[in-house]
């Protein structure tokens, strides 16, 4: 993985769950500072930043908004996000909010992107209405790439039905076209 890992996907794809667990995995296997950036501006509830205490205990720094507490809808971004681009020995995971409106927030940092340092992974859930077959998934990926002006280099199949997920559900037939 690169120094800055962007995790994106449609809302409901499971990207936040993936981003959070990936951060924990990295922290366990690395001496470097790990930072989790919550750029999920679309969801007013269920965001990474709501578990700030948990991350602190795990030694993961979380950067989101300068608004105290998480119970506000204002999509304010912290200036501290700039530091993940400027601090070279910091590994970061950016949890990018679902849909192009979430991706819009990342575009403002475009001038700080160094291609060799950034990688974008797309998390998909074939049980979400807009990402149920190859064509629609690729269409969605293209839209996202246009929105953030970066190429997606990997697709993570996080197909699930929340707590109703079974091993059968994971092998969704439609995706095998």
């Amino acid at each position: 993985m690169k120094r800055i890992q962007i995790i994106t996907g449609h809302f409901g794809s499971g990207k936040t769950e993936f981003a959070v667990n990936f951060a924990k995995y990295l922290k366990k296997n690395s001496d470097e500072g790990i930072c989790l950036v919550d750029l999920d501006l679309v969801n007013p509830y269920f965001r990474s930043r709501e578990k700030t205490e948990v991350y602190k205990n795990l030694g993961i720094e979380i950067v989101s908004s300068d608004l105290e507490g998480e119970a506000a809808d204002i999509p304010s971004i912290s200036a501290r996000i700039q530091k993940i681009f400027d601090t070279k020995n910091l590994k970061s995971i950016i949890d990018l909010g679902g849909d192009s409106m979430g991706a819009t927030a990342l575009r403002r940092f475009r001038e700080s992107f160094i291609e060799s340092e950034i990688e974008v992974w797309f998390v998909m859930n074939a049980n979400r209405p807009n990402t149920q077959c190859v064509e629609t998934i690729l269409d969605y990926v293209k839209k996202l790439e246009t929105a953030i002006e970066l190429k997606v280099s990997g697709i993570i199949n996080a197909t699930h039905m929340l707590k109703y997920t079974t091993s059968e559900r994971f092998n969704v037939p439609r995706f095998s076209n």
């Binding site: 501006l41 999509p75 304010s76 991706a103 819009t104 575009r107 403002r108 475009r110 001038e111 929105a147």
Partner: peptide, 9 residues
């Protein structure tokens, strides 16, 4: 943030 641009842009 909502325009999707850097401050200068």
């Amino acid at each position: 943030t909502n325009w999707g641009m850097s401050a200068i842009e």
